[in-house]
Amino acid sequence: MRHGSIPGAHGRVRPLTLLGDAGLREQCREVAEFGPELAALVEDLFATMYAAQGVGLAANQIGVAQRVFVYDCPDDDDVRNLGHVVNPRLVDVDGVVVRGPEGCLSLPGLEAGTERYDHAVIEGFTATGEPVTVHGTGFFARCLQHEYDHLEGRVYADHLMGWRKRKLLRHIRRAPWHR
């Protein structure tokens, strides 16, 4: 990402991977090389996320099985959090478990009350290889856990149980994008 530029301004919008595509269920590979290709991937992730009106996007959601995600997400105090993480590790989740509405660009048009911790800490690197630690609270903590799950091959529906899960699965089967 160019210094001082708007994230995604130089990226291209890529097609989203939808639930049912095998790549969404595979654990992503660590990024081994930090260079122009990685910077271009981060730009494409931002461009695609903004085009789809999302608050976060993981690389496997555009068909790239690498451990990278981007975010532009407010916390519960409406503070904007903007950035990306390469090779993230979820190092801490704690606080209160809160059930809140959660959606996903790979399950368009659907959402369900999903339980997540209200505090999360992610460690990783920037696209230039600098170490980064991201602390999230409230809605932003939910976003960090959601994007990290994608890189592990999970979607928010995997956290649901009982009638919430049955209801979401019914809606998925009826969704126009479902295969």
Rank of each mutant, 00 (worst) to 15 (best):
R2C: 14
H3G: 10
S5Q: 07
G8C: 02
H10C: 12
G11V: 04
G11E: 12
R12V: 09
V13I: 02
R14D: 03
L18S: 02
G20H: 06
E26K: 12
R29M: 11
V31M: 03
E33W: 15
P36F: 01
A39D: 13
A40I: 09
A40L: 08
F46T: 01
T48Q: 07
M49E: 01
Y50G: 00
Y50C: 04
A51P: 09
Q53C: 02
G54L: 04
G54D: 00
V55T: 11
G56R: 00
G56E: 04
L57P: 06
A58Q: 08
N60F: 03
I62A: 01
G63Y: 14
V64H: 15
V68Q: 02
Y71G: 04
C73P: 02
C73R: 01
P74N: 11
D75H: 13
D76K: 01
V79W: 13
R80I: 14
P88C: 00
R89D: 02
R89N: 11
L90E: 12
D92N: 12
V93N: 03
V93E: 06
V97K: 09
V98S: 05
R99L: 11
R99I: 15
P101C: 04
C104P: 08
L105N: 02
S106C: 13
L107V: 07
G109T: 04
L110C: 07
L110T: 01
E111F: 10
A112M: 11
T114H: 08
R116F: 12
D118Y: 06
D118C: 00
I122A: 08
E123G: 01
G129K: 02
P131R: 01
H135G: 03
H135S: 03
G136Y: 12
G136L: 07
G136W: 12
T137A: 14
T137G: 15
F139W: 04
R142Y: 07
C143T: 13
C143S: 09
L144N: 05
E147V: 06
Y148S: 05
D149G: 04
D149F: 13
L151W: 03
Y156G: 07
D158A: 04
H159Q: 08
L160G: 05
L160M: 07
M161C: 10
M161W: 07
M161A: 15
W163D: 14
L168F: 02
R170W: 08
I172P: 04
I172F: 10
R173V: 15
R174W: 06
H178Y: 15
